[in-house]
Design a protein around this nucleic acid. Structure first.
Lengths: 223, 223
DNA sequence: TTGCAATTCAAACAGTTGTATGAAACTATC
DNA sequence: GATAGTTTCATACAACTGTTTGAATTGCAA
């Protein structure tokens, strides 16, 4: 195993280049040049280009999923096993949005990479996303406990719509900014999350949420 | 001009192959083989591969946009210059959804192509989509007329969310079907449109204040 | 040191890609 | 039927792709 200097150098360089230029325009030769390692190192350490991309995406998305589940757990504990629909949806879309949006210049390479992964759809990433269903089922289950009076079909549609709004906001933030002539503030992630959660709750319950959780547990950029 | 047999044969074959296998896996050689024309014909008739893709996408999306604007016009005429928000949103998302969803086996090549174009994001198509903003502005304007009491920011977010739900439903219908174990009927386009419109209307006309308490159905910006 | 495995390296490999070329075949006009 | 313009064709091009190879180098244990 020695030092995985080479390995991590490749990972870092690849993440940065993919974030900057997208998957279509970056070749292995670009990556190894940026990482200052030999061309064969990629296949030696990762097996193939696709496995490199997969590793980048997997490691980031399990981090997000962990955050999601952690928030969900906290919400369910706080509600005595039955979290509020508000907090469930917040746990669902919050981590992703906080991880990808926010002031342009503050965005990490990782977040820019994840935005790319949302926009361009490349086979290895698509394969991983398809396995995300089991993860979503946990949220569907929590929602069912939270809103037993809502039909399952409506629940799934609500979940789907919440993800849709979050996802599209990440993917197409630029268009919204242009369309609104800058009026829609895409740097204010907290408010965006509030909006998406509010709309989703309305969609699910037919009425507005009374409770807006006072203080947030997690914020981007630790204290 | 002779007969544009060759031209249209290329267009048809390309649309079909892209619809079936996606943009990443189809080469010019695949296309000309399917169209039974010479390799050089693509560059002769279209200039380049990207221009071929662009032409396919443009012709389909101006058709959709025309439908949208037509529905919008009808709605505004019916409302005496001020269409209901319901009908505006329906004009926005209806044509796209009807064009892309519905029973699998009934889907035309064109609709499958447009689904691909939603999922995979390839440069020539992205460029065209970026020019779609002017088209959306017409809907934003209609919405403003329809809901003068709603702030512009909220209007843009509502428009954005409506598109988000429509778009994601097209893109990820398979995941929703799997997640809901088939309970969400993605063949019933009419109901899907109803759902999306209903949620969007609720998002737009419900109370908009998340931070301020107790304002009745009131304007959130200056009157 | 010796031996052995892990790692790095330059170079080549084996395809594939979109595009360009120049001659041939066609079409319509005079 | 000759001519000019359009369209087709086989072929070559030039570049780029991810991957493999086998030899060098390194690091570490005995």
């Amino acid at each position: 195993m020695a030092s995985d200097q080479t390995r991590t150098a490749i990972l870092h360089a690849a993440e940065r280049l993919y974030a900057e230029r997208g998957f279509g325009d970056v070749t292995l030769r670009d990556i190894v040049a940026a990482a200052d390692v030999n061309l064969a190192a990629v296949n030696y350490h990762f097996g193939s280009k696709d496995e490199l991309i997969a590793e980048l995406f997997v490691s980031r998305s399990i981090a997000t999923n962990r955050e999601r589940l952690n928030e969900l757990k906290l919400a369910e504990e706080a509600g005595g096993g039955r979290a509020s629909i508000d907090s469930i949806l917040r746990a669902l879309v919050g981590p992703t949005l906080r991880g990808c949006l926010g002031p342009e210049r503050e965005r990490s390479t990782a977040s820019r990479f994840m935005i790319r992964a949302s926009i361009e759809s490349v086979p290895p990433i698509r394969r991983i996303k398809n396995r995300e269903i089991d993860h979503l089922r946990k949220f569907a289950a929590a929602m069912r406990r939270s809103l037993p009076e809502v039909s399952e079909v409506d629940l799934y549609w609500g979940l789907h719509f919440a993800l849709a709004m979050a996802h599209q906001t990440i993917r197409d933030s630029e268009r919204l900014a242009k369309l609104s002539d800058g009026m829609c503030d895409l740097d204010d992630v907290g408010t965006i999350i509030d909006r998406i959660v509010a709309v989703s709750v309305k969609a699910l319950t037919g009425r507005q949420t009374q409770t807006k959780p006072a203080a947030k547990l997690v914020t981007r950029g630790a204290p």
